[in-house]
């Protein structure tokens, strides 16, 4: 079986842990519990007829007091960069983290998840910004760990890129 390490990266409280919990356990809670260090989960998926064991590294969110150490990313095959659609500054943070990860690891498959789509009415991230990022080459999904929207798709899409499967 293929094993792949996938890292969740983003600012604090954007929903990284909730996305992993939704994907692995199909559960969601509104209560915010900060992640310290890294929490590792496993999930097996089938992608392009191959069984893949995903090792999910859910890293602490970056804030003004602590930077994400790139040593946690060593061995990663893909990144899910997560931002909170209701806090536009978290998109800037996701971009910054992608750039730092690329400096440490080289080019690596990644997606940008704009999370909290269930709160679309309160979003600060504008459609214009999303269009601009897409034109810059970002692959973006609007996700909701609460409703589950596009969560499975996000992990599947990145897994396909990590194993070099042709995109559907």
């Amino acid at each position: 079986m293929i094993q792949k390490k996938l890292c969740m990266l983003g600012a604090f409280a954007v929903g990284k842990t909730s996305l992993v919990r939704r994907f692995v356990q199909s559960l969601f809670t509104d209560k915010y519990l900060t992640t310290v260090g890294v929490k590792i989960d496993k999930k097996q998926v089938v992608c392009a007829d191959k069984e893949v064991a995903l090792l999910l590294w859910d890293l602490y969110g970056e804030d003004e007091f602590q930077r994400v150490q790139t040593s946690y990313l060593r061995g990663a095959s893909g990144l899910l960069l997560v931002a909170d659609g209701t806090r536009s500054a978290t998109v800037d943070k996701a971009i910054e983290l992608r750039d730092r990860a690329a400096s440490a690891l080289g080019p690596i498959p990644h997606l940008l998840l704009l999370n909290k789509w269930d709160l679309a009415a309160d979003w600060e991230v504008s459609e214009e910004r999303i269009t601009t990022l897409t034109q810059q080459g970002w692959q973006i999904l609007r996700t909701s760990a609460k409703s589950g929207e596009h969560v499975e798709q996000a992990f599947q899409q990145l897994t396909a890129q990590m194993i070099g499967a042709p995109s559907k």
């Binding site: 260090g37 929490k39 064991a53 602490y60 150490q69 060593r74 061995g75 095959s77």
Partner: peptide
């Protein structure tokens, strides 16, 4: 499996804190 991709380490030492 949490050691996937970490070894061998390119640096003389590396520390990962609070790994669950």
């Amino acid at each position: 499996p949490f050691l996937l991709g970490l070894l061998p380490c390119p640096d003389p030492r590396m520390v990962l804190s609070s790994v669950q």
